[in-house]
Nucleic acid binder design. Structure first.
Lengths: 109, 109
DNA sequence: TGAATATATGAACACTTATTCATATATATA
DNA sequence: TATATATATGAATAAGTGTTCATATATTCA
């Protein structure tokens, strides 16, 4: 059975619309930084507050917030507030799948 | 059954090693440009020579070669020469999967 | 061999990005 | 209310990126 996405990939002589390609590029760009990937690796095991993330990384809390903003904008992470803390988690299973496939791709040497 | 990659994602308190995260980031970076994605969308339907790719894109042949070099370096595309033409194609199914998952992610709005 | 064609490469440049620092906003607590 | 804590934001800056232009390399064919 052909998935919707696979069907879409074949639409049109030039392939996907410029708009969709730009959106895909933006999503991949959001995953293309080691700091953001480290954040996602931490979130892979469950939700974490911003400060907790910052404690596990080598960058400032400010940098973590900036990166979370990027991940948020692309629906890669969700968040909810509890008191003055903000807990982040992975947005959906697509994100999990994409991370795992890419890890497999890396490990296949 | 837990995949190897999934198991790997949980290894260690800090998650994945810095080296693996950097490699993943490089792979995603290779996918994070509209021109390169358009190349991959064309290759999704089968192999294409460099000039053929350039004819379908809005950038110079030089730019296409530069981008193919990046995709080659990360094992995202394969190639073989036939006479003076060089035919490129997608390297493996991980690449197909990653592209499709991301497209699904985009289309889920 | 010489000309034409296909692809690759290096330099230069405009544009983008990840970080820190300083500070703002929001919430809890004494 | 005043203070402390958690997070977010804007400005500045150093480093990285995608493109074109010019040119090199490789292959075919007259």
């Amino acid at each position: 059975m052909m998935m919707q996405a696979e069907a879409q990939f074949r639409i049109g002589e030039e392939g996907l619309s410029e708009e969709v390609l730009v959106q895909m590029a933006e999503s991949f760009k959001a995953l293309s930084d080691p700091t953001r990937l480290q954040i996602l690796a931490l979130l892979f095991t469950g939700e974490h507050a911003v400060g907790d993330l910052a404690d596990h990384l080598d960058v400032s809390q400010s940098a973590v917030s900036h990166q979370l903003r990027i991940l948020r904008a692309l629906d890669i992470v969700r968040y909810h507030k509890e008191g003055r803390e903000v807990y982040y988690s992975l947005a959906d299973d697509h994100v999990r799948d994409i991370l795992l496939r890419t890890l497999e791709h890396i490990l296949d040497d």
